[in-house]
Deep mutational scan, measured.
Amino acid sequence: NKFNKEMRNAYWEILHLPNLNEEQKNAFIQSLYDDPSQSANLLAEAKKLNDAQA
């Protein structure tokens, strides 16, 4: 299933973003579980936030 793979990839990438705190990571990961079809968008948002907090 495409979403499972996308979701897993997004999950791991978000988990390893160095500039997000636990609360931010948890919020993105919760959103992933709530709507796996948004994995790519959530990952993009997480990366933007990560870069902004660098």
Rank of each mutant, 00 (worst) to 15 (best):
K5E: 15
K25D: 01
D35L: 09
N1W: 00
S39I: 15
E22F: 14
A27D: 07
D34M: 11
L20H: 00
E45N: 06
E45H: 13
N1V: 02
Y33P: 01
A54S: 10
L49H: 05
S31Q: 10
S39L: 14
P18M: 11
L43F: 03
A46D: 00
H16G: 10
K47S: 07
M7L: 04
A46G: 08
H16L: 03
L15I: 11
A40T: 13
A52I: 06
E6Q: 06
A27S: 13
D34S: 12
Q53S: 12
Q53H: 08
Q24R: 09
N1A: 01
K2V: 10
Q30S: 08
E6H: 05
Q30D: 09
R8G: 06
W12F: 04
L43D: 04
K5T: 00
A46T: 02
E45M: 11
Y11N: 02
K2A: 07
N41H: 09
F3K: 15
Y33H: 03
P36W: 04
S39Q: 01
A52Y: 12
Q30L: 06
K48E: 08
A52W: 13
K5H: 02
E23T: 06
W12N: 03
P36K: 04
M7V: 10
I14K: 01
E23P: 08
L20A: 03
A46Y: 03
N50L: 03
F28I: 05
P18D: 11
L17I: 03
A40F: 14
D51G: 08
S31P: 04
W12E: 04
M7N: 01
W12S: 03
Q24M: 06
Y11H: 04
P18Y: 09
E22S: 13
M7Q: 15
Q53R: 10
F28G: 02
D34F: 10
P18H: 06
N19W: 10
F3S: 15
K47Y: 04
M7Y: 03
A52M: 10
N9L: 14
K47T: 02
A27W: 08
K5G: 04
A27V: 12
L20N: 00
K2D: 15
N21K: 07
E23M: 10
A54I: 06
N9P: 01
L43G: 03
N26G: 09
E13N: 14
K48A: 07
F28S: 08
A46S: 06
L32H: 00
Q24L: 10
Q38K: 03
D35T: 05
K47Q: 06
S39D: 01
A44Q: 12
L49I: 05
D35F: 04
L32W: 02
D34N: 12
F28L: 07
A44N: 09
A54K: 05
A46F: 01
E13V: 13
S37Q: 08
R8F: 14
E6T: 12
D35W: 07
E6A: 11
Y33W: 08
D51E: 14
A40E: 11
S39V: 13
S37H: 05
E22G: 13
W12Q: 03
E6N: 02
D35A: 08
N21A: 08
M7T: 07
N21H: 12
W12R: 11
E22W: 13
K48P: 01
N19M: 14
N41V: 10
N50I: 03
L43E: 04
E45D: 09
I14R: 00
Q24A: 10
K5Q: 10
Q30R: 13
N41L: 09
E6G: 01
L17P: 00
N41A: 12
K25G: 02
M7F: 14
L20M: 08
S31A: 12
N9H: 15
N19S: 12
A10K: 01
N9S: 03
S37V: 04
W12D: 03
K5N: 01
E22P: 13
N41M: 10
E45F: 03
N19H: 14
D51A: 10
M7H: 02
M7G: 01
E13S: 11
A52H: 08
L15P: 00
A44T: 08
R8E: 15
S37Y: 10
M7W: 15
L42E: 05
N41W: 14
K2Y: 05
E23V: 05
D34R: 08
K25Q: 06
N41D: 14
A52S: 11
N9I: 14
L17M: 07
R8L: 14
S39F: 15
Y33S: 02
Y33Q: 02
H16W: 04
L32N: 01
D34Q: 13
E22V: 13
N41T: 07
P36I: 03
K48G: 10
L20R: 00
A46W: 00
N50Y: 01
L17H: 04
L15G: 02
D34H: 11
K47R: 13
A46H: 00
N9T: 10
N21L: 11
M7A: 14
L15M: 04
S37N: 06
E13A: 14
A10L: 02
N4R: 01
A46M: 01
L17S: 05
H16R: 07
S31I: 06
L15N: 07
K25R: 11
H16T: 04
R8H: 09
L15Y: 05
F28D: 00
H16E: 02
K48S: 03
I29A: 10
N4A: 02
A10E: 01
P36V: 04
E23H: 12
A27T: 08
E6W: 01
I14L: 07
L49K: 11
F3M: 15
Q30A: 13
D51R: 07
